[in-house]
Design a protein around this nucleic acid. Structure first.
Lengths: 224, 224
DNA sequence: ACCTGAACACCGTTCAAGT
DNA sequence: ACCTGAACACCGTTCAAGT
């Protein structure tokens, strides 16, 4: 795991630090990305990172911003509902490879050009849908949070730990659901399999469709 | 802040520890609740807590479960949409006084009787709405996450710090939004005030309505 | 400009010991 | 049963110093 490349071993840069941070977060969870661990993996003193980042929060912000680099801001098509779905889809696609980092994006949406562009598009869609500024803003924020929620995955097992920990928790969850009394929790018993399947794809699709459908419903209520 | 009550100063209990944990989380954020801090505030050795809790995660789980104690599980009325909204409302109402603790509830919904009861009701509503087990489960999980997102408040300033920090961040946010070029971000400029208002009430209402409307829309699509 | 070294004030947790 | 004390392996960060 330690830095072994002879080429470009010199010159610590913000980019290389963020690369490592992303790798560590993906492998062992966001709580594992630590100044000291990144330093040792980069073959450097912990304090070396403080030349490139003012603080650990700064480092995490930089890591979050990296996700936004991959976002392709969709063009407007005139169909506000489709546009809103496209913004959500773009955001979700960018966050999905790094679910551990996704929650940090909440604080970066108004602090980054891409984040601002996405927010602008979302608000524009909601504006043409007929929402006043206040509900439009609330909906835009909820959109952001929903997107994060979709990629963060199964709420029950937090999906942070990889490998065996993950499997064991999933087994525990299944055992728990199987042990429930069908009289007290009839529907839950029926849905035991579905609640543990962890199919991220359907989860994301349902999430985006749900949000757009919700906004559509609220927009329709405005006209009455 | 340190424990000063002469009555019942003896006998550390799980309840008293959780009380403190909640107070600290509300005052200084969830990252401030620390075994060592709780111990000193309770006038006790850090290790004393380990008699009542197996680990810090256990302590946090206990703190999260406390929020669920205040939940009143709503009765079914026959109107599945209303029932779904009631479940969401009950959950949101319980989490709202302690936004810092709310995210921890995600892991406790299937590990606690009240959580199971709420999940059962939500799944039952979605079942009568016509959803198959898989989408119903996905929607139920998204409901939980949405509820947490609603109480966690403004994504931009994370609302964890109280008082002056909070005010300063809000001012920074306003300044940032005011400094945007209206050509590049026309809608954002229009919504600058609304994006900073922090009105939690409208935010929650919009969130619940949005979710129910979304499910209604998806349910209607099922019949076509 | 860019990095090292030592030090400080924190963490969670183990293990043995007290009462 | 319930709590203390010392110790271990971690944290983020400051401050002075090296090159």
């Amino acid at each position: 795991v330690t830095e072994t490349k002879t080429a470009a071993r010199s010159s610590l840069t913000r980019e290389r630090v963020v690369d490592r941070a992303l790798a560590v977060a993906d492998a062992d969870g966001i709580e594992a990305v630590t100044i000291r661990r990144l330093a040792t993996e980069l073959g450097v003193t912990p304090m070396a990172l403080y030349w490139h980042f003012k603080t650990k929060d700064d480092l995490l912000a930089g890591t979050a911003d990296r996700l936004l680099d991959d976002v392709v801001v969709p063009d407007g098509t005139g169909d506000w509902a489709a546009d809103l779905g496209a913004v959500l889809g773009a955001l979700v696609a960018a966050m999905r490879p790094h679910p551990q980092v996704a929650p940090l994006l909440a604080q970066r949406m108004l602090a980054t050009p891409t984040g601002l562009a996405l927010t602008e598009r979302a608000l524009a869609s909601l504006d043409t849908a007929g929402f006043a500024p206040e509900p439009a803003s609330a909906l835009a924020m909820q959109a952001l949070r929903s997107a994060i929620a979709m990629v963060t995955g199964d709420p029950v097992d937090d999906a942070s730990r990889s490998g065996e920990d993950h499997d064991e928790r999933l087994r525990q969850k299944q055992a728990l659901l199987a042990s429930l009394s069908p009289e007290k929790y009839p529907t839950l018993a029926t849905h035991a399999q579905a609640m543990t399947w962890c199919g991220a794809d359907t989860y994301v699709e349902v999430g985006i469709d749900l949000f757009v459908a919700g906004v559509r419903g609220l927009a329709a209520d405005l006209d009455r």
